[in-house]
Design a protein around this nucleic acid. Structure first.
Lengths: 108, 108
DNA sequence: TGAAAAATTCAATATTTCATGAAATGATGA
DNA sequence: TCATCATTTCATGAAATATTGAATTTTTCA
């Protein structure tokens, strides 16, 4: 993950519909969701959602695959991992106490 | 952390100077940095940096405090924790294997 | 084969965001 | 007090981004 990728990912997530869509896909897990299902869940128009999913796709945060007449989207947790690592890089340099609580909260 | 706060934080981080400044402050740790030091480290004009720091401040990602004739900025790791938790919410619902690698990477 | 469903692409408009120069504020030390 | 340093505020023009209606592509099923 370099600055360019991180900016693309952060920019992609900094818009309401895209943030909602991404979190929906994170919750959906590996099975993902069809574009139409996301559309219904978030109550946005098909073309608006399509444009927004395309931004997430371009940023590498989601992947897609045709399935019958629909298209299935899944969250790319690997990209997520890279982004979080980039943001927290060297956070512990000399002060492990500072970042430990950050990680503790994320434990599932 | 709600959607509004998350969007403010993500929007704040999705700009080169602000992302660099935030990461610089994360690396700097609790001691933080003076605005002028950040200015020199990133090679940006004072007013541009000021506007960008103000966005980070408004998003709650950094805090500041006057120190003599300078102003010292520090990263707010607590806000960071909240943002990461919001993004990964329910990531493990039924599939812990999916998110475990995400967290493993962050361990310092 | 042809109609309908699901999703995307395209073009245009409206909105937001950004960096800059100039001016103002706050704090220090002579 | 006054000059200077450090930083912020303000107004402006330029660039990037979002949403919408219309048209297009791909797939399915009668």
């Amino acid at each position: 993950m370099d600055q360019k990728n991180a900016l693309a990912a952060l920019g992609a997530l900094s818009q309401p519909t895209r943030l909602d869509a991404f979190r929906l896909l994170v919750k959906a897990g590996p099975k993902g969701m069809l574009a139409g299902e996301i559309c219904a869940a978030l109550d946005v128009r098909a073309n608006t959602l399509s444009a927004n999913l395309s931004v997430l796709l371009n940023a590498g945060l989601v992947a897609n695959q045709r399935e019958g007449r629909g298209i299935r989207y899944t969250a790319n947790l690997d990209a997520m991992r890279g982004l979080l690592a980039y943001l927290m890089e060297d956070c512990c340099g000399g002060h492990p106490d500072q970042c430990r609580p950050v990680l503790a909260e994320l434990a599932c």
